[in-house]
């Protein structure tokens, strides 16, 4: 864990009022509201988090209802996303995987989605939303590494990961699990790269 410290809900993380995800303020200080850790620079990183949609987030979902006005999309959330039919030309069917952008979120969490793209056949995997930044990596380093070695893969901010049927799905699931378990260790990209190298060697033999 190299000098990092696990923080529990209610623990003080700063002596001033600062706005950090996964934290809340009283009149003088900032406290964690979820389990997280303080890194070497004193930044708070939540380790468990419920995803709350924000405008312009990229989300992946499955069409669960097709009506005249539009489509409902299941997004691993209590609320469903809605794609207004007049905004899109393509016809969707129940069970289609789609990737889209959040265009609008109401106060109660209902969303309108835009920039819809239908995904080809593949497999959906659930991933903890708090760790999505690790799966993508700095400047897409991690996700590009996986794409190189596995095939087409797409990550939504809501925690759904889509893997193309043409990709090596078992290997992809293995790697995604590995990143889930090791999300709070440093040098993660190097370890995943080493893992791929080893995997390749095994294949040759």
């Amino acid at each position: 864990m190299n000098g990092r410290k696990i923080i529990l809900p209610g623990e003080k993380i700063a002596d001033a009022r600062v706005q950090v995800p996964g934290a809340f303020n009283d009149s003088q200080a900032t406290y964690a509201s979820v389990v997280g850790m303080l890194d070497e620079e004193g930044r708070f990183i939540p380790m468990e988090k419920k995803y709350r949609p924000i405008v312009d987030d990229v989300v992946i979902g499955m069409v669960t209802d097709a009506r005249h006005a539009g489509y409902d999309v299941e997004l691993n959330l209590p609320n469903v996303g809605f794609i207004p039919a007049r905004d899109i030309r393509l016809k969707l069917e129940l069970g289609d995987f789609v990737v889209c952008k959040v265009r609008e979120v109401t106060e109660t969490g209902d969303m309108d989605l835009a920039d819809v793209r239908r995904l080809p056949r593949g497999q959906m995997v659930v991933f903890p939303p708090a760790k999505v930044p690790r799966l993508i990596g700095k400047k897409l380093s991690m996700i590009n590494l996986i794409k190189e070695n596995v095939g087409d893969i797409l990550v939504g901010n809501n925690g759904y990961v889509w893997i193309s049927e043409k990709a090596d799905i078992p290997l992809a699931i293995k790697v995604v699990k590995m990143i889930d378990e090791g999300a709070h260790f440093s040098g993660l990209t190097d370890r995943v790269a080493a893992f791929f190298a080893k995997e390749k060697q095994n294949k040759v033999i």
């Binding site: 809900p9 209610g10 406290y31 509201s33 979820v34 389990v35 939540p46 468990e48 988090k49 419920k50």
Partner: peptide, 11 residues
């Protein structure tokens, strides 16, 4: 609840 990531004011 902490393990589930549900925000709490305190333990």
């Amino acid at each position: 609840l902490a393990n589930a990531g549900i925000p709490m004011k305190d333990m």
